[in-house]
Design a protein around this nucleic acid. Structure first.
Lengths: 218, 218
DNA sequence: CATGAGCGGATGTGATCACAAAGCTCACCT
DNA sequence: AGGTGAGCTTTGTGATCACATCCGCTCATG
């Protein structure tokens, strides 16, 4: 049942380049691809059963968002982030997410919190099953569910490009150190939400983000 | 001479799609295009003397960054921002720019401040000449010169996509109300920089951003 | 005079091809 | 044994074409 929460179905009637884009975007954001993973135009085209043209457009779009990086010779791969870059992206998350959470707080209602708890349980299950992709997916879903309430589409859009850039690196992390306990701050987030405590929510979000990514340092 | 400061020359040996991308990107960011301006694939291709393929890649890349919007039928135009969206983008600027300024402050030296003052004078000249494009260009250049010192490429990258989204709208503003005086906060920014005063710099940057965009409300 | 059906041009989409350059393999030479 | 270069393969780039659809305009009709 939890997997039906976000099975973001890709419309079959969408243009080919859009289907390719959305499919790859999910793969990258959810950490299905390792850092440094090379992608070829013809390979992508074959994988999605389209010609090179829509594959090229999808890759161009993803590199524009930082989801993929471009080598000097035009080859494309998932990003291998330096420690500095990881640190910087974490700080951006620590800047944006408390702000989004705070904005969502005013509009949050009980149904939202219930939904977040359900997602959090799916997250715990993913940890138990040692499923890194499902773990990342439910973790992001937990945050996004909250931030959607902020009614700040531009800010959420920016944040998602940050998530996108971190996708492969997060996979590398969570397969390296197989964590066995749920992220402790999710509970704090939910409690702050219930209490309507803005300061506590901001703090919980900030520490959840920085704590989770502190382990990323190589 | 000031125009040589940022005549970001586009390498002639760059791939065609990249030349088109960079050219259009500058046009959008500097407010050379009005909001709602329609762009056609074949028109762009002819303008840059390339075929449709590289033109398509450039447009796809720009729409991915929010520099252009896509209608339901795939037609592409410069964005016509709602008041809410303008407000949100301004708040994002107000969030990111003080942070970038603060990071740059520690690394700022006299040569940087001198350069910023030179750019600010070019900015004043643009106001005197009633040249909206040159005004926007020098204004962004003023900020970017500072933020480059922050050594935070990811954050600056995010900020630039925000500037991109605001480009056409800024043009619409600055042609509507022809301002005749220089932005008052640039002086405050420079003074805070000289004094090494972090709090004052953050405040000056924040007010410069919000003040400048408050007039945008229709 | 308003309205809508129909037509022709304009536009985005996707496939395919030719080409140049980058990368790789492996035999060969020192 | 180790570097090296020739030759083949893979890959990205850009042009062109066919096609479906959308848009705007005209003209007939109420």
């Amino acid at each position: 049942m939890p997997e039906t929460l976000t099975r973001s179905a890709i419309p079959a009637d969408a243009p080919a380049h859009d289907r390719v884009y959305r499919g790859l975007r999910l793969q990258v954001m959810h950490g299905e691809l390792a850092p440094g993973q090379a992608l070829t135009l013809r390979g992508i085209a074959k994988q999605f059963d389209v010609s090179m043209t829509p594959a090229r457009e999808a890759l161009r779009r993803l590199t524009a968002e930082g989801a993929l990086t471009l080598s000097a010779s035009g080859r494309v791969m998932t990003p291998e982030l330096s420690n500095d870059r990881i640190e910087e992206l974490a700080q951006i998350r620590a800047l944006l997410e408390p702000e989004l959470g705070s904005r969502a707080l005013r509009r949050a209602h009980l149904a939202l919190i219930d939904r977040m708890e359900a997602i959090n349980e799916a997250n715990a299950r993913a940890i138990h099953l040692q499923d890194p992709v499902e773990y990342i997916r439910t973790n992001l879903e937990f945050h996004r569910t909250l931030y959607l309430r902020a009614q700040s589409p531009a800010m959420l859009g920016l944040l998602e490009t940050v998530w996108l850039q971190l996708g492969p690196t997060m996979r590398a992390l969570y397969t390296r150190l197989r964590r066995t306990t749920a992220p402790p701050h999710h509970r704090l987030i939910i409690e702050a939400l219930r209490a309507g405590d803005d300061a506590a929510l901001r703090l919980a979000l900030r520490t959840d983000v920085t704590q989770g990514l502190r382990h990323l340092q190589v």
